[in-house]
Design a protein around this nucleic acid. Structure first.
Lengths: 186, 186
DNA sequence: AGCATATGCCAACGCCTGTTGACTTTCGCA
DNA sequence: TGCGAAAGTCAACAGGCGTTGGCATATGCT
């Protein structure tokens, strides 16, 4: 009885929900379509998750899983961080869900803020970085912009980049946002 | 008869449409709400613009209006470009409309691609920049990411930046994307 | 003034949405 | 084998949507 019958249905619903929310955004992803993908009745979605909003909340759970940065050499911080973010991005489509929905859904926006400010800032504090909030914000602009162009807009030159090329291009940017003295020039 | 009565209604509809599309995104911005904002009947919107899609197409017209970059000193390119983009952003909310809608609306996404690849790339070509497409794409990631965090997500540390501070932070990034040799470090 | 045309309003349509409640089937345990 | 609960099905609801066509009003020209 460790695995009940209903658990698999719940999981199927959640997987379908993530796919639809990620592909269509919050409003265009309908309960009916999600249910059809999971091959069950729309009413089951309501029984298991209560409402579309609660289903979304469950589908948008995310942890950026930052590694410990305090023992990384200062001059490799950018590369390490960028590589982690990009790889985290591609192994888990939840961030694509958030990106696609945060634009019109306040709950998604709040969760995104929580990830990028609430999780990045304290990690930077622990790594003894000054002005951790501003730096977290700046890094968010580059990381989210990259994801937006690569996965949502699908700009050809950005889609074409390999992970290594992307790391090589973005690494120095992230590094500078992380370590450069306040408003600086080049 | 240079200015007919209907022209003002058309303009009122377009202004209301821009506001709603920019605030709510494509699907949540309803014809009825736009018409209410413009203080006219929903049927008028159809009469003047034919359909919601065509209204959107009219509301999302945008030109990035890049200045001529060929006579700007190489070491000021980043600052100049960033300042232009940010100021262009804030004087015209059409880009916010695009940003809010490109996520779920293919027409908006296509227009955004046209702006950032179709307008940036040839300008870089004229300024004798090598690999203009990749560089345009990279600059798009940083510019759009900044706008996304500042105007859509409203991340506090990014919202709090003044224009000058933003230029100081992003300028070197854009400059590097514009001039650094291919995949580089530092 | 009188008429044609431009402008605007109203009511309704067909469709799709999230959500609900009642009903049927399946399963696990005594 | 029975019985109760869990799991799944079905049809319908109320409301919002884009869109349409018919009708009233205002406008401008002769």
């Amino acid at each position: 009885m460790a695995e009940k019958k209903s658990d698999r249905t719940r999981a199927a619903i959640l997987a379908a929900a993530r796919e639809r929310f990620g592909a269509d955004g919050y409003e265009r992803a309908t309960i009916r379509a999600i249910a059809a993908d999971a091959a069950i009745d729309p009413a089951m979605v309501m029984r298991y998750y209560g409402s579309k909003e609660k289903l979304f909340a469950a589908a948008a759970e995310f942890d950026v899983r930052l590694p410990d940065l305090s023992d990384v050499p200062r001059d490799q911080l950018g590369q390490v961080l960028v590589r982690h973010l990009i790889e985290r991005w591609e192994e888990d489509d939840t961030l694509q869900v958030l990106l696609r929905t945060a634009v019109t859904n306040e709950a998604a926006a709040e969760r995104m803020r929580q990830v990028f400010i609430g999780q990045l800032t304290p990690a930077f504090e622990r790594a003894a970085v000054d002005q951790p909030a501003v730096r977290a914000g700046l890094i968010a602009t580059q990381a989210l912009g990259f994801a937006f162009c690569r996965y949502i807009l699908e700009l050809e030159p950005i889609v074409a980049l390999s992970t290594d090329e992307a790391v090589a291009w973005l690494g120095p940017t992230i590094a500078r946002y992380l370590t450069a003295p306040s408003p600086s020039q080049a």
